[in-house]
Computed example of a mutant assay.
Amino acid sequence: MPRSRERCGVRSPIHGVHEMTTPLLMAHGSDDGVVEFFQATEFYNFARRAEKQMVLLVYEGEDHGFLEEANQRDYHRRIVEWFGHYLKGEEAPKWIVEGVRLEDHERERARVAGDEGGGSGG
């Protein structure tokens, strides 16, 4: 009788990605000392290939927790926009629907930082 994945010690969420029904927002620091960066990108790629709604935010130079205030604010604003869309039915910001191209990162970061008063931006 084959051993289950659980008993073999294989507990990667990748094994259940096809069963995922909830949109997932995941953030990762590029210098994370706890979770390898390749694991985040591997999960992201599996989820997207399975046509699951998922966004991976990558914060350059951050570890497992975000220390830079600008990154903390950016992540907070994106969480608010994410739940605004998926829980409150607000229009999805462009970054959820289309992503953000590498050359547009600084402009998007400035947009989020400038949106201190609330609202979902776009």
Score class of each variant (00 low, 15 high):
Arg5Val: 04
Phe43Gln: 13
Glu6Trp: 12
Glu60Trp: 14
His64Trp: 04
Glu60Pro: 14
Val58Asp: 02
Ser30Gly: 09
Pro23Trp: 07
Leu56Lys: 10
His18Ile: 10
Ala70Val: 01
Met54Asp: 03
Arg48Gln: 07
Thr22His: 07
Ser12Arg: 05
Phe43His: 15
Arg49Gln: 09
Ser30Cys: 07
Glu69Leu: 14
Ala27Asp: 07
Glu42Thr: 15
Asp31Ile: 01
Arg5Asn: 08
Met54Val: 09
Glu6Met: 12
His15Phe: 11
Val10Ala: 14
Ser30Glu: 13
Arg11Gln: 12
Asp63Gln: 15
Cys8Val: 01
Leu24Ser: 15
Tyr59Glu: 06
Ile14Lys: 07
Glu42Gly: 15
Asp32Glu: 08
Gly33Phe: 00
Thr22Leu: 08
Val55Asp: 04
His64Gly: 00
Arg5His: 09
Met20Gln: 13
Val34Lys: 05
His18Leu: 13
Pro13Phe: 07
Lys52Leu: 00
Ala40His: 02
Met20Thr: 10
Glu36Cys: 02
Ala50Met: 06
Val34Thr: 12
Tyr59Trp: 06
His64Asp: 03
Glu6Gln: 14
Ala50Pro: 03
His15Met: 02
Phe66Gln: 02
Glu62Ile: 06
Ala40Tyr: 03
Phe37Ser: 10
Glu19Asn: 06
Glu69Gln: 12
Lys52Met: 00
Phe37Thr: 11
Ala70Phe: 00
Gly29Lys: 00
Val34Leu: 11
Ser12Asp: 12
Glu42Met: 15
Val58Gln: 05
Leu25Pro: 12
Val58His: 01
Ala47Ile: 02
Lys52Cys: 00
Gly9Ser: 03
Gln39His: 09
Val34Pro: 01
Thr22Asp: 03
Ala27Lys: 05
Met20Phe: 02
Arg11Tyr: 08
Pro23Arg: 06
Leu25Glu: 10
Arg7Val: 07
Met20Ile: 03
Val35Ser: 08
Glu62Gln: 08
Ala40Arg: 02
Asn71Trp: 11
Gly16Gln: 11
Glu68Thr: 06
Asp63Trp: 04
Arg5Ile: 02
Ser12Thr: 13
Lys52Ser: 00
Met20Val: 05
Gly65Pro: 04
Val17Lys: 06
His15Gly: 04
Met20Glu: 08
Leu24Met: 15
His18Asp: 15
Leu56Pro: 05
Arg48Trp: 01
Val35Phe: 07
Leu24Val: 15
Val58Leu: 09
Glu51Ser: 14
His64Cys: 05
